[in-house]
Design a protein around this nucleic acid. Structure first.
Length: 297
DNA sequence: TAGATACCTTATAG
DNA sequence: ACTATAAGGTATC
């Protein structure tokens, strides 16, 4: 295993690894201790987490001002990329419009970063997220990896990669339902098949203008505008995407009623503008986590 | 094109 | 114990 330590003092805006990984934006990392992410998130800010990317295992934890990592490869650049450590978070916060709710959320969890997860696992996990609680979404992804994922042995431990599109496409609907996916099972299967067959791929949305990118992603089965926004924000670098989930919808009614426009597309445009445009997704993720933690007055 | 409804499964509230 | 309700929505009509 190779190792490294990234000084957090060098990162604009700092880092809160636990908030980053346990705030419900990423389902690609697991705690080494096997603890499920509790609501709103588990205690223990110095826990080890691990993920598998491209056949390599990466472990990471935050301790004493450093982000420590261990990996089967030289993971320094990969860790920076996956956790968007080079985002100028101070500048992003400074550039966000003054707003009591956003300010409070930024103050509460400063250092939380938007993740940059691989596209396929992100798309599947957010298809699974429909009408689900965060902790259960995690368990579903773990079940998928343990059932259909390739095993990787590293440093005397076995890890499971997230399944390939081909493997999930080959699973039966019944097998997926047995893992607790419910009505999402055929969505996962069909979207996996579309990708495995090369009909289209989520990463094609990376270079498109935001709304075109969102429309592109909704071609996948089980992917509506909300899930598309999650994939754009947490995997494809569209930091202006603001997923309109139940928490944000409620916040719009309560704090930004003038942004409620009836349709998803129109409300999306209004709230993106209110949240500062280019980096509106950062504000969304902080507000989401803040509301879910029950910190709003 | 906007609006209503069904949908798996689990956890929690009453 | 038992029913109602809601959980990071989407597809269908």
């Amino acid at each position: 295993m190779e190792r490294g330590a990234i000084p957090i003092a060098d990162l604009s805006g700092g880092l809160d690894l636990q908030a980053t990984l346990e705030s419900g934006q990423s389902y690609c990392w697991r705690r080494d201790d096997g603890r499920a992410y509790e609501e709103p998130f588990a205690t223990g800010g110095d826990a080890w987490y691990h993920t598998v990317v491209g056949g390599d295992v990466i472990r990471a934890r935050q301790l004493d001002g450093f982000l420590e990592w261990e990996s089967t490869t030289d993971a320094d650049p990969l860790v920076r990329e996956l956790l968007r450590l080079d985002d100028d978070l101070d500048a992003i916060v400074a550039g966000t419009p003054d707003d009591p709710l956003i300010d409070a959320a930024y103050d509460a969890f400063r250092g939380m970063r938007i993740v940059n997860d691989p596209a396929f696992p992100t798309m599947i996990s957010f298809i699974c997220s429909a009408q689900m609680r965060v902790e259960r979404i995690h368990r579903m992804q773990i079940a998928l990896a343990e059932t259909f994922g390739e095993e990787i042995n590293a440093n005397g431990r076995t890890y499971q990669a997230f399944p390939t599109p081909e493997r999930l496409a080959a699973a039966s609907e019944g097998e997926l339902r047995e893992l607790g996916l419910g009505y999402r099972a055929p969505y996962v299967r069909e979207t996996a098949r579309m990708i495995a067959d090369g009909e289209r791929h989520p990463t094609e949305a990376r270079g498109l203008p935001y709304e075109e990118a969102r429309d592109h992603l909704t071609e996948f089965v089980g992917v509506g505008p909300k899930v598309a926004d999650c994939v754009l924000l947490f995997s494809l670098g569209h930091l202006e995407a603001v997923p309109l989930d139940t928490w944000i919808q409620t916040a719009i009614e309560e704090y930004y009623p003038d942004c409620a426009r009836g349709s998803y597309a129109a409300t999306s445009r209004a709230i993106r503008e209110r949240f500062g445009g280019e980096y509106a997704g950062y504000a969304q993720t902080y507000v989401f986590h803040y509301l879910r933690a029950g910190l709003d007055p």
